[in-house]
Design a protein around this nucleic acid. Structure first.
Lengths: 251, 251
DNA sequence: TTGCGCTTTTTGTCTGAGTTATGGTTTCGC
DNA sequence: GCGAAACCATAACTCAGACAAAAAGCGCAA
């Protein structure tokens, strides 16, 4: 009976060298954020679940602890483990965000994410312009050069893009902004990959970034804010928002 | 031998009806965010740790999973469990934030948090003014009345304050903003309690909130933004930023 | 009706064993 | 002497099965 079978579908559904508990958490997490398990619903008991998955109860329990730590579920004796209401989910947790983007994120979600970026990143850039050190500038410069060299068509280029944003936000000197944007940039990275696959290279993104960089170099807060706002606006334009507006009563 | 002794100091350090694993996670988490365990440092092994705490290995492991889910630690075979660099921490996770505020948060942390609020909440209020429904207005109105009745001196009043903000942000229609601010308001709630204990009732906060509410009612986005900005500014003034200020190096 | 206590279900905790990943070391080949 | 491949020791990881505790729901009695 212990067939070692891939009851967890280890291979087909993402692969990040996760441990067993991590894989279980990811699978369950994806099902929750995708709506396959809905808020209020109680999962079946630990024994049933772990048997179905052919894993030990402890591995399953650790997975549930992970989900609970991210606000996706709560569990209590006698009632079981139930999916939490959406407003309790840690939507900006990098893992949760990744699980959302692994599926088919609803257009409104994408919209909301860009809306948040529009609020945060221009202001963060303005702060960065005021507080950046030479080290930050060096890091941004290097990332920018790497971006130009590789382009977003290859992984190296996308990593450089990420690095640029990370360095910029780190220069803002606000740890909360850094933490916040970590997850967002990761999601955007995944999105860029997808975007790139759909229709490659519409416009060279380097000049946009260059403008932000220049403003930060000259400590021009207002310029950095404006440049970043423009950068995000263009990025949104390049993002394929699937099926739009048509009545959109998705839920 | 199983003395059931309070090796975890269940009583003295916070009490929220947590399970054993939750209590362990909280204790370790506090030690990490407070700097008592520093990034890069490896904790001692599962067996040693669980023995020291007089808990089973599974309970300890589940605690570590929680911390790992919040980005505070990572663990791998042969190396052990080590504290992650700060930029990987989920600083906006409500639990992490609570752990930070349970200790003696550094003034810069407080400053950074208010800086983030200053970026987010005015814009969120502006969005809310445009998107709010009658239901949101009703909720805000009720919270406002409760706030006036109870004042921030009692728990009921502080809860009403929280409810007001939660309702307002929910009206923004952006789930990420809601998620983001959940943790922040919780932290601020804790802070308000502390603040209240230090020096009670400096100024009636209801008028500030009333102005925001009025702007949202009349769908005046710009007015809501301004009123909220002012509200946060006043809240910051009322917040006891310990030591500092001499020299006015506010950053 | 209402409150108290019992029952039963489900998660929580414990113990102890075997498994697997992996950093460090050693050996082998050149 | 030096680099790569095999080895080894050590940690987390996974498993199994038992017992403990919490709590929702029910029944009983005042």
């Amino acid at each position: 009976m212990n067939k070692k079978s891939g009851a967890l579908s280890d291979e087909k559904s993402g692969n990040k060298a996760l441990r067993l508990h991590g894989a279980i958490a990811r699978n369950l997490g994806r099902r929750i954020v995708s709506g396959r398990y809905r808020p209020g619903q109680v999962l079946e008991g630990e024994i049933e679940s772990s048997e179905q998955l052919n894993v030990s109860r402890s591995a399953y329990r650790e997975a549930v602890r992970i989900l609970a730590a991210k606000g996706l579920v709560t569990s209590r004796p006698r009632v079981g483990t139930r999916v939490s209401p959406r407003h309790e989910w840690r939507l900006l947790d990098p893992d949760v965000l990744a699980w959302i983007f692994d599926g088919e994120p609803e257009p409104e979600i994408l919209q909301s994410l860009f809306e948040l970026r529009t609020l945060i990143e221009p202001e963060a850039a303005a702060l960065a312009a005021k507080r950046r050190t030479q080290g930050h500038l060096d890091g941004m410069r290097a990332a920018l050069d790497a971006m130009r060299e590789h382009t977003l068509a290859v992984e190296a280029g996308r990593v450089a893009d990420q690095t640029f944003h990370a360095e910029l936000l780190s220069a803002s000197g606000n740890p909360f902004i850094v933490s916040l944007t970590n997850g967002v940039t990761a999601a955007v990275h995944a999105l860029t990959e997808f975007k790139q696959r759909a229709r490659p290279l519409r416009r060279d993104p380097v000049p946009d970034h260059e403008r932000v960089y220049e403003a930060v170099v000259t400590k021009d807060a207002e310029g950095a804010r404006t440049a970043m706002r423009e950068l995000i606006r263009l990025a949104l334009l390049d993002t394929p928002i699937r099926r739009r507006s048509a009545k959109g009563k998705k839920r």
